[in-house]
């Protein structure tokens, strides 16, 4: 809506008179923004190039700031996957934790946010305070670690899914969204004989796709990028998610390990290429998803900040 106002408003303004100063400002503005985009993309560009540059060229390019490959190759990617199964294993763990974790988180967030969005529910404010308090007082790393450990979740995939299952912040965003759905709609459904559960599933959730999409994205991004929970709770390397493995590779203790049983070991690429290819594998999926949800998550951020 605001956009359309702007679109109709701007030409009218331009018609009056474009000042010389305004034009100079526009040029400077575009230049700065192009620079911002360049500074943001440059490190990624470097990684993309390195990951597909053949080993011989990497040696040749050692003294260049950035160089596009002459003969692009996927050999570094093949190298990573041809070692022991560590990388593939970690990818599977990350995919599982992201899909199962995001789904469970969305379910528990919606289940909690929906009743809390009902102002008429007796005791709703008190219950809300129970959730709200956990936002302002953090139990701390050590007590949380000891408590989760006592639940015998250590070294299972559940340690990556359950301890951070519900984000109260996301729940509040969702609650604010549920409140914006007119009560009349639900009232009508109830008069037609819908139960509370049926109203939620058939009326409220279909209307909430934008908020479900953005909160789903927030959870998915969190899961995909999380590495520290595995540092705490997973000692078995076979259960390490991608980011935790990546951190190990970066600390370069694992590079030699990746080689074990590697058929191509004698043609080992430089570590910068291995790291670049690993980074690509661990970032490309999320980078491909977020632009499509941009419209939704921008709204989600706004809702979250307006109402606390």
């Amino acid at each position: 809506m605001v956009d359309s106002i702007k679109r109709t408003g701007r030409p009218a303004r331009n018609k009056i008179r474009t000042r010389r100063g305004d034009r100079i400002f526009a040029v400077i503005n575009y230049t700065i923004l192009v620079l911002v985009a360049f500074v943001t993309l440059f490190p990624f560009l470097d990684v993309v190039f390195t990951s597909i540059t053949p080993t011989e060229e990497i040696v040749l390019n050692a003294k260049k700031i950035i160089a596009a490959p002459q003969h692009p190759t996927f050999s570094h990617y093949r190298y990573i996957f041809s070692g022991n199964r560590q990388m593939i294993n970690s990818m599977i763990i990350t995919v599982i934790r992201t899909s199962v974790g995001t789904l469970l988180s969305l379910v528990i967030t919606a289940l909690t946010a929906y009743p809390l969005s009902k102002r008429y529910l007796p005791g709703v404010n008190g219950i809300m305070k129970v959730f709200f308090f956990t936002m302002i007082f953090y139990g701390g790393m050590i007590p949380t670690f000891l408590v989760v450990k006592s639940y015998r979740m250590v070294d299972t995939i559940w340690a990556l899914i359950i301890p951070e299952m519900l984000s109260v912040y996301n729940m509040i965003i969702m609650r604010t969204f549920f409140r914006s759905i007119p009560d009349e709609l639900e009232e009508a459904a109830r008069i037609d004989g819908c139960s509370d559960v049926k109203t939620l599933v058939k009326i409220v959730l279909p209307l909430s796709m934008p908020v479900l999409a953005s909160i789903g994205l927030f959870y998915a991004v969190w899961h995909w990028n999380a590495f520290f929970d595995a540092v705490l709770y997973i000692t078995d390397r076979n259960l390490w998610p991608l980011q935790t493995l990546l951190r190990e590779i970066l600390l370069s203790t694992s590079i030699s390990e990746l080689q074990q049983g590697n058929l191509l070991a004698d043609s080992m690429p430089p570590s910068s290429a291995v790291i670049a290819a690993s980074i690509m594998i661990s970032t490309v999926p999320i980078v491909c998803v977020y632009p499509f949800l941009q419209k939704h998550f921008v709204k989600g951020v706004m809702v979250g900040s307006v109402k606390g």
């Binding site: 909690t112 009743p115 529910l121 139990g139 701390g140 949380t144 000891l146 408590v147």
Partner: peptide
């Protein structure tokens, strides 16, 4: 039903937020 929906969330905060605080 509305109260029932709150049960999983409440169990979660007690087990993973309040017990650590007590801890």
């Amino acid at each position: 039903f509305l109260y029932l929906m709150l049960v999983p969330g409440l169990i979660y905060v007690v087990l993973f937020k309040y017990l650590p605080i007590a801890g």
